[in-house]
Design a protein around this nucleic acid. Structure first.
Lengths: 110, 110
DNA sequence: CTGATGTTTAGCATCTTTGCTAAACATCTA
DNA sequence: TAGATGTTTAGCAAAGATGCTAAACATCAG
């Protein structure tokens, strides 16, 4: 996947308010799919699809733990995904720190 | 318009790659609608609608200059729009500088 | 094995987005 | 005023996004 496609996927994923809220919730620590779904007035299958979009964009990772599937926020990927664009458009207002993004840097594949 | 709605509009506007490219192009300075359209393999009416979305999100401003309509990038609005979210989700990787966003700060209405 | 629990997949309906062309509107020039 | 140029609005078709329910899959507990 090219860097541009990765960026596109991230912005596409961030377009939906439910998905942005999921990412905010995951900032507080890992959550199981069901725990996430319980926080919204939306059916579990719909949340599952949102999680799939986030996973496809690389913004979360998942692992099975017994019965449940645990989702984890991938902060670096978020910073990487929006980083090039924000640096290009409003570098005076937003600064990317540390590993977030370096010009020409390679990022690992998912 | 609430702050949350403003944030939603900004992220929705950023979801489209053409609109992101328009913002990047405007970083180089003001451009007329026709000058912007000339940079894409997309019809002028379609570009006009993209510009309307960007304007609706507050990411650009427009002014008429004789025959033409000149679009200007609103960097602060972009930083403000994405700022709260990025601060909430990946504060370690992204730093907001100066007027970009302050907790509880009021932003002017459009 | 059976049933309960957690989660995803499949299929459908509806709304939104995005592209196009044709036409209208606005301004400049002659 | 008439025509040329720049831009937007209107209307349509195709593609995508998002919600739901029903059903399937995976794992745990008895």
């Amino acid at each position: 996947m090219t860097e541009a496609q990765q960026e596109a996927g991230v912005f596409r994923a961030l377009a939906d308010p439910t998905r942005r809220q999921i990412l905010e919730d995951l900032r507080g620590g890992e959550l199981a799919a069901g725990e996430i779904a319980a926080r919204f007035a939306i059916s579990a299958p719909s949340i599952s699809r949102h999680l799939g979009v986030l996973k496809g964009a690389g913004l979360v990772t998942e692992r099975r733990e017994g019965n449940r599937i645990i989702y984890t926020l991938a902060q670096d990927r978020l910073a990487t995904g929006v980083g090039r664009f924000l640096s290009a458009v409003c570098p005076e207002q937003i600064v990317l720190r540390r590993t977030a993004w370096r010009p020409g840097a390679r990022s690992e594949e998912s």
